[in-house]
Design a binder for these strands. Structure first.
Lengths: 134, 134
DNA sequence: CAGTATCCATTTGGATACTG
DNA sequence: CAGTATCCAAATGGATACTG
């Protein structure tokens, strides 16, 4: 702990890693809810319980694979509850848990704000593109 | 515009498309801020103005390419301001715009909540995995 | 310094077919 | 109905080298 054969970089690298690792603990979870289909699934479930295919139609444009994957991740994280009735044909109902509902609410706050900004965003886009187009 | 050679599916497809398109207007923008590096860049800029490489070190683990891409998208959307001084060597400063700051704030609300839930999330993960592991 | 350009590995994601 | 399994196309993302 006195001589340093490595460079200063070593220490710096550790710092970076720490910050990164710390930020990453929730990163994965965060990406489940902010991900492309995560947002839509959470949003769709805000109105109430839905079965797999109903949810799939509600979201629109999602493949079975991706919806299943998304729902599994959200269920594993405790944001979505999965109620499978062992009947034939199977009936599986999805709904938000308490923390899922809170998350969806926060998500909606962000979405609504961004949506409210869309006119400005489109303007900004146009300005940016025009400046580049010169 | 009277006869419909296509099937009912056509209409359904249009409905799905509409919903999807509507949701998608802000989707792209939303993904810029919720994306992997978008979140980190916005978070890093909350503390103030940063130059490209400083920001890069602050975020940690991001390649030049991805940071440049991320910043361009955020600038194009009007969330980040880019101040380039035509000096040699070049000096470019990045900061949040007003709407960028508001977005970052909402983002932080979401992140903080998810982070506060991490113990429960990890528990949920463990329970889920245990149930699967049987 | 602040990027752009290129190449390449990995990941992502959808269509399809099949199962309980 | 509610998925799983497989295959393959496309997008993502990083390392590297180069430019103004």
């Amino acid at each position: 702990m006195s001589e340093a054969p490595g460079r200063v970089d070593d220490e710096h690298a550790r710092l970076v890693f720490d910050v990164f690792a710390q930020a990453c603990t929730s990163r994965v979870t965060l990406e489940h809810v902010t991900g492309r289909w995560g947002i839509l699934a959470m949003a769709a479930l805000r109105d109430g319980t839905l079965r797999f295919n109903a949810l799939r139609r509600r979201v629109g444009g999602v493949s079975e694979k991706m919806l299943a994957q998304t729902l599994q991740a959200l269920e594993r994280d405790g944001f979505v509850r999965r109620d499978a009735q062992p009947t034939i044909p199977p009936k599986v109902e999805y709904s938000l848990t308490k923390s899922g509902a809170k998350t969806a609410e926060l998500l909606m706050g962000l979405i609504d704000f961004v949506e409210s900004q869309m006119p400005e965003v489109m303007e900004a886009n146009a300005r940016y593109d025009a400046a580049k187009g010169l």
